[in-house]
Simulated assay, not measured.
Amino acid sequence: MTDGRRGCMEAIRVFTLVAATITTGLSAGLFYAYACSVMPGLRTTDDLTFIQVMQRINVAILNGWFLLGFLGALVFTALAVALHLPADGHRVLPATLGALVCYSGSLAVTRIVNIPLNNALAAAGDPERIADPVRVRGRFEARWVRWNTARALLCTAALGFLCWALVLHCHTTAN
């Protein structure tokens, strides 16, 4: 590989690692904020308020900025893995693979647990017309909180792996 091509590949690898780290950090921060402030803050509200707020948040969060971080973390991390498959990138490969596994785990939790719970909460309808809001909240809150904490931990682990990958990449290119 020529020096120019090698330099271009290194720039792409660094950009991809940085983009993966930033987008994963955004997702980790979001789940952390829910775990440490949003859900504890809602814990003391009445059932109707809790349902109404969560329904509104679940609608508002589905926007381009959220999706950029949420899906961008998967895309950039997978790309970082692919770009570090060649022999000259192998030193960083275990850390990027660890990040991809952890982030994919958080997506699996989201898909299998949190989204169905959000959908069930939305299907309950207008909080003012719910016959048994205690039951609706009870079927949602504890399970959603528990699995959101798992997502926060998985995303934080992925972020840690990506930070380590950046350290390894910088150390490798400095030598």
Score class of each variant (00 low, 15 high):
60 A>D: 12
69 G>H: 05
72 G>T: 06
47 D>P: 02
59 V>W: 04
40 P>M: 07
42 L>R: 03
61 I>T: 10
72 G>C: 04
68 L>E: 01
69 G>Y: 02
45 T>V: 12
60 A>N: 10
71 L>Y: 14
75 V>L: 15
64 G>S: 10
55 Q>D: 01
78 A>E: 07
65 W>M: 11
40 P>I: 02
68 L>S: 11
54 M>A: 04
74 L>F: 14
43 R>K: 13
49 T>G: 02
42 L>T: 06
62 L>E: 12
49 T>C: 09
42 L>M: 15
71 L>A: 12
72 G>H: 06
59 V>H: 08
63 N>M: 04
52 Q>W: 09
78 A>L: 15
72 G>M: 07
50 F>Y: 15
55 Q>V: 01
50 F>E: 08
47 D>L: 02
41 G>T: 04
61 I>L: 14
75 V>S: 05
40 P>N: 07
77 T>Y: 02
63 N>V: 08
79 L>I: 10
45 T>P: 00
66 F>E: 04
78 A>Y: 06
50 F>C: 06
72 G>F: 05
56 R>M: 11
72 G>R: 01
49 T>D: 11
73 A>R: 07
79 L>Q: 03
50 F>R: 08
49 T>H: 06
65 W>E: 06
71 L>S: 05
66 F>V: 11
52 Q>Y: 07
57 I>G: 00
41 G>Y: 02
52 Q>C: 01
63 N>C: 12
41 G>H: 04
64 G>M: 10
67 L>D: 09
66 F>Y: 13
62 L>G: 05
63 N>I: 04
61 I>G: 03
46 D>N: 14
41 G>L: 00
41 G>S: 05
53 V>C: 06
44 T>E: 12
76 F>N: 10
55 Q>E: 07
54 M>G: 03
58 N>K: 00
76 F>R: 05
42 L>V: 08
62 L>T: 11
48 L>G: 01
75 V>G: 06
51 I>K: 00
76 F>G: 04
64 G>E: 06
75 V>R: 02
63 N>D: 14
46 D>H: 10
73 A>I: 03
71 L>C: 08
71 L>D: 09
46 D>E: 14
73 A>H: 03
64 G>N: 08
71 L>Q: 08
75 V>I: 15
68 L>G: 12
67 L>K: 09
78 A>H: 03
77 T>R: 00
40 P>Q: 09
